[in-house]
Write a protein that binds this DNA or RNA. Structure first.
Lengths: 343, 343
DNA sequence: TTGAAAGCGCTAACAC
DNA sequence: GTGTTAGCGCTTTCAA
């Protein structure tokens, strides 16, 4: 690893001049610059970011914390962030928390040691507390929100998405619609639940809490909840299910299959968040799809814009509240109910 | 951000002592240690890794480069690596190349600036050239190999996996078996192709090159290749397909559906690499599954062991060649051919 | 336009 | 067992 001193020596200038030639080309005479550039090239010089960052007190680095990198949605968020960061000349360091408070704390501690200039986080119920580990760090909340005022949030319009999904089912003639909702300590779950309720109310139907079961967002939870809902006596059993996230939707579909219910004849299903398997399963699943990649990109763009403001000493812009629309994708997992309820 | 000097001042010791109290507790008197620890705690002190790494000339950081973080297999590799790195007290920085030479170069350059102590890479055809950007960096090749001698490789036994898949099809009675193989500049594609050929030969069948079509590993390529193979005249058309990676398998399944072929009656399919959609599609897909997470963990464990050797000045251990078995998971996408070939 | 010198935060070498 | 000093590689005053 050659240092800037090596480059300087080779170019017959001081380290200071070599540094300037590389980072502030216009502060240096034309031909000195060329000599330095040539020397750097020849040595394959790459600045040591540790030293540079230490000196400049800025790392051009941001942290990204998602809760489950194995979930395609989160992987896509992360990719959007990384691609955008790259475009801005920043490096994004990715961490994964598995929704675990301890892992989140450790990720934040590690991150802190590397002095990121900002953080994009998919928050968990612990995040608000854990963020005290990194005071004064510009934060963007992605996909979910903690309710922290003063931070920028980049989310999807969950309420409208859930409402559209539910309204679609109602439009098909369903009146007993079940919902499998995430744990209500997460904003997306709360909002999707709210959208569901709104659609029910708007259609003049009665909201039946017995048809709304919570889960911890995992496939297994979706399966168990669906099993319970679908085992209700026929006249109480929902004829359609709206499932609040993609993992639980898998479980719900599996549960329907286990019970020998065919989709959509015996049961309509709408999932939240599109995926490969939703497209290839039989029948293809009607879903509320989310612009995951754009979400990641926007989160990063906003964070970096904010960093620019801070750096240039301008007043910190008031925090943005970015919200992207979802899209209801109609496929074959929804149809009118066959047996009209007869209470 | 408090520095070690702040801690030292608060504890009434020198910075050096504070440093020792934190990193080498036994070099310091019991009660000084306590004072320092207390002060550190009180200030929420977190060492500045940039400064520490600069001074110690070791970052306890490794790089991870995968080709497609959106592919569940690669995401799982990355997670395995990160989890293992974490256990060893290392931080893994993840980059994504999309199989693109330029992105790979940029990732390596960025990485280099951050002085990783080692690199785990899923190599592409460009990697061998690009690795010149990071001379002397300990490397572990993951999933694929470049043929570089002297580097540790952690892979799966692709030959046996492909052979088992093909033998399974042959055992069911298939004699015209098509293969959709990846580009042959990637070791996994070459090996899976070899395994396919071996099984054909071992069964005394004739290898028909016309039934083997290459693709670029994308869904679209799988679809196009399958469309071509399945459009052959009935007596030439393969009754079974072995597809060399998971993305292309999606395409192949879609192609079969487009042509109205039902699986497994009209066409048996075996894919390489298991996935959510392979399990939930109809019928569930027979696949060769790979222990992706363990692969990632092993790659990291080996790399870090190697770093230990280097650091302790021991002779660099000869590079390991780790190879994990695959598993053929029989599901419902394979069955005996209905119409026995009549050439 | 360039060089000399200082210092970012940390730890290792060397006193004492 | 602890303090002093030096220096990792870089950039940024400050002088010339």
């Amino acid at each position: 690893m050659s240092s800037i001193q090596d480059v300087a020596t080779l170019a017959n200038v001081s380290a200071a001049t070599a540094s300037r030639a590389l980072s502030r080309p216009d502060m240096v005479a034309q031909h000195t610059r060329e000599r330095v550039l040539h020397a750097a090239q020849q040595l394959g010089y790459q600045p040591n970011m540790l030293a540079r960052s230490l000196r400049q007190r800025e790392t051009r680095t941001i942290g990204v914390i998602v809760t489950d990198i194995l979930n395609h949605f989160h992987a896509t968020l992360a990719k959007g962030v990384q691609d955008a960061a790259d475009r801005h000349g920043y490096t994004a360091f990715l961490f994964n928390t598995d929704e675990d408070a301890g892992k989140e704390r450790r990720a934040l501690d590690t991150l802190r040691g590397h002095l990121p200039q900002g953080l994009i986080v998919v928050p968990t119920p612990h995040t608000r507390e854990n963020l005290k580990l990194v005071p004064n760090l510009p934060i963007v909340e992605l996909d979910r929100v903690t309710g922290n005022t003063g931070v920028t949030t980049v989310t999807v319009d969950n309420i409208s998405g859930a409402r559209a999904a539910t309204a679609h089912l109602i439009g098909l003639g369903h009146t007993r619609i079940g919902m499998i909702v995430g744990k209500l300590d997460i904003s997306t779950a709360v909002e999707r639940h709210a959208g569901f309720q709104q659609a029910i109310a708007e259609a003049g139907l009665t909201y039946d809490p017995a048809l709304v079961l919570p889960g911890q967002h995992r496939e297994k939870d979706g399966r168990e909840a669906a099993l319970r809902l679908l085992s209700l006596p026929l006249h109480l059993r929902p004829t359609a299910l709206f499932v609040g996230n993609n993992e639980m939707t898998v479980g719900a579909v599996l549960a329907a299959r286990e019970l020998g219910l065919s989709i959509p004849e015996d049961l309509s299903i709408v999932g939240f968040d599109d995926s490969r398997w939703a497209q290839t399963m039989t029948p293809p699943l009607t879903v509320v799809s989310q612009p995951a990649y754009e979400l990641g990109v926007l989160a990063c763009d906003h964070l970096i814009a904010q960093l620019g403001h801070i750096q240039s000493g301008r007043a910190r812009a008031s925090p943005a509240r970015v919200q992207l629309p979802t899209e209801l994708i109609l496929r074959q997992s929804t149809a009118p109910p066959v047996c009209v309820p007869s209470v």
